[in-house]
């Protein structure tokens, strides 16, 4: 197991290097002269030369990449232009907020995906099965920003049941119930697409097992339907793990829209603000952080897979 994990981690190194190279390229290739942008057009040549040297811009690209990578590894992602603070200081608190939202959405994805998928697999030809199929198809095609706006319009503005944004009420106690009330709508908006995909995959996996030899032999031995189902669900669960892990990663990308529309102060919201302000260091830091988290989630999924299924380890 340890060997498997080590190998998997080693394999992630070239991928991560590639990811950092792409992110660095977006810094280096940005059109325009950063020195002129910083000093203004009429700056004296000495000042220009000094700043060019201070920023290391006279160095060849590979040297600059190595330099940037070294700083990034030690947590130094540069200084935000709009915030005038180190990028890492802005990103870290936001990461916590994003993880809270992602965790809530992920719970919805698993619970909803399994329920919807099981309904479809157990009674494929019933009204419930058809509705489950239609619902998952609808969920898969529902862009997060559309869902977010519709949810706000109906539940926050129309019915006034839930808050339209933020993480806590201004005059509230900020306790767990307050947080949960603020989490519901953004979590639903973020969860819908992954929920639909999970439901589809689980439906196909469970349906396959239920129609296969395992289910037949269990039934032939006289097991009760509930016991047959239990065994079959167990058999279909690796598929759930794989797709669930992929969806966790997908949630990380959906949050940029959801957080923006619900004013949720996470990485996505920060990225949106950075984009509107053309704050490139912050954009790059945010993209890098999410991409690294994405690779990390994939490693975790592989590890969990190896725990459940010994065949994967070799």
């Amino acid at each position: 197991m340890t060997r498997f994990l080590l190998r998997r981690l080693l394999l992630a190194v070239p991928t991560l290097l590639g990811v950092t190279a792409v992110v660095f390229a977006t810094v280096a290739l940005v059109p325009g002269d950063p020195v002129a942008a910083f000093l203004g057009p009429g700056a004296p040549p000495e000042a220009r030369r000094e700043l060019t040297e201070r920023l290391g811009l006279e160095q060849p690209l590979p040297v600059r990449y190595a330099d940037w990578l070294g700083h990034a590894l030690t947590g130094d992602l540069g200084t935000s232009i709009s915030g005038q603070r180190p990028v890492a200081d802005l990103l870290l608190p936001a990461l916590g907020q994003t993880l809270t939202l992602t965790a809530a959405a992920f719970l919805l994805v698993l619970a909803g995906g399994v329920a919807l998928g099981a309904l479809g697999a157990l009674r494929p030809r019933s009204a419930g099965g058809r509705i489950s199929g239609a619902l998952s198809a609808l969920a898969v095609s529902a862009p997060q920003y559309s869902v977010a706006l519709l949810l706000i319009a109906v539940f926050a503005v129309g019915l006034r049941w839930l808050p339209a944004g933020g993480t806590h009420d201004v005059f509230g106690d900020g306790g767990p119930i307050d947080l949960a009330r603020h989490l519901i709508l953004p979590a639903v908006a973020a969860a819908l697409v992954p929920l639909g995909l999970t439901a589809r995959v689980f439906r196909a996996a469970l349906g396959g097992v239920l129609a296969g030899e395992l289910a037949d032999s269990l039934r032939a031995r006289g097991l009760r339907p509930a016991a047959v189902l239990r065994h079959c669900v167990h058999n279909a669960s690796p598929a759930l793990l794989t797709i669930g892990g992929l969806q966790l990663a997908y949630l990380l990308e959906g949050v940029i829209f959801v957080e923006t529309l619900f004013a949720w102060p996470g990485i996505g919201r920060l990225l949106y603000d950075a984009l509107t302000a053309r704050d490139l260091p912050l954009v790059q830091g945010g993209v890098l952080m999410v991409a690294v988290a994405f690779v990390g989630v994939n490693i975790l999924v592989d590890a969990a897979h190896a725990v459940i299924d010994p065949r994967v380890r070799n």
Binding site: G18, V19, V22, A249, L252, I256, V283, V287, A291
Partner: peptide, 20 residues
């Protein structure tokens, strides 16, 4: 190369490219 591009969530890669 494809692995690296796959390592980015789609929207983020699009953002990284488009912001340039």
């Amino acid at each position: 190369l494809l692995d690296v591009l796959y390592a980015f969530p789609g929207v983020l890669l699009a953002i990284a490219v488009a912001s340039l």
